[in-house]
Design a protein around this nucleic acid. Structure first.
Lengths: 190, 190
DNA sequence: CGCCAGGTTGAAGCGCTTCAACGTCTGTGG
DNA sequence: CCACAGACGTTGAAGCGCTTCAACCTGGCG
């Protein structure tokens, strides 16, 4: 909970009084490996803050899972589109490790906005961060080939192999397992 | 200017008094066809609202232009990443037709936030809209092939051919001119 | 009229996919 | 404790779609 306060405090400065308002709005949840936080088609009414663990956000196309986003400690997660628009989620969210999160419901969030408009800033900053992620992700596809995307990913998350199996990484990169295998081989031979 | 007020009013309700604050912060600009609103590497200190015209947002990779986004009437534009983070822009923005816009500087925007926190909502909503665009764009690359992306684009903008040349459309779809040409031929033969 | 930008088409090449086989590691039950 | 099954990853061969390069067509405009 302390780290959450620290994280939010980096967005807007939080007095003890503010914290007294905020704290009770978050609900703690433990999620076991392979369990789902959200299923495609359901409504996403919460955002969550990852205390511990790793999640993947994916959707299914022609019977095949495609990973869109990974979440680790300190990240804010959710299907933010569904959260914003109140439409059914286009993603499922699954824990890849035993995990602990703090959830915040849409109602709480709007209550916050109405309590004090300065809390708008929290929503704005989360939206901005998710925007930057999505835009970078899109640009990576537009501008880079799979090998470049792979190199960028391992540069950003050097330990990702310890936490995410290669076939999920391949899916995230937009390619199939065998292709990732061949890319890795090619790189190791250089 | 009236349409702008209408547009903003759909975000937060605007009283005449609010509008008296907002209005003078927007600066009108006319931009001729092929002129640049922003050059890659420069800082983007404004967002703009398109009154009239068409823009493309693109970057250069290996000497080749790649189109990331088109803006038409009623859209909010900018390199929002640069605007947010105050880093040099990764995009250039060019008018594809004679255009008219209203610009809003970062300073004005922050002044607005400080005048009345309810204006935070404007920034939040713009961020959310750009987030949804970027996320959909990224997902299109992850989930769809070029033909699907093409079909989606013309479904959304049936008249886009009248305003955007095919080689920009190809670039936007992440393919080369000849490939788009062949896709269109394939579809017309069905 | 002639030029040039925008678009189409053909042929060859390359990278990712597909399908299938095989290797390796780990966990589980006998 | 061993044996086996299943999950994960690698590899080979064939196929397909986009790219590349080049030739060619067309319409608009000086």
């Amino acid at each position: 909970m302390d780290e959450l306060r620290k994280n939010i405090n980096s967005i807007i400065s939080i007095s003890d009084k503010d914290w007294a308002i905020l704290k009770p709005m978050f609900v703690y949840k433990a999620i076991k490996k392979n369990e789902f936080f959200l299923l495609e088609g359901k409504h996403s009414n919460t955002v969550f803050y990852v205390i511990k663990g790793a999640f993947r956000v994916f959707t299914v196309v022609d019977g095949e899972e495609r990973d869109w986003h990974f979440h680790f400690e300190g990240n804010w997660g959710s299907d933010y589109e569904s959260f914003l628009t109140n439409r059914p989620s286009r993603f499922s969210i699954q824990a890849m490790e035993d995990a602990e999160i703090l959830t915040l419901s849409r109602d709480s969030m709007h209550a916050l906005y109405n309590t004090d408009a300065k809390f708008e800033r929290i929503g704005r900053i989360i939206a901005e961060q998710l925007f930057l992620f999505a835009r970078n992700r899109g640009m990576d596809f537009l501008l880079q080939n799979p090998e470049d995307r792979y190199l960028k990913l391992i540069k950003e998350y050097p330990n990702i192999f310890n936490r995410v199996p290669l076939y999920h990484i391949a899916s995230y990169l937009g390619i199939k397992g065998p292709s990732l295998s061949r890319i890795r081989r090619r790189l190791s031979e250089k």
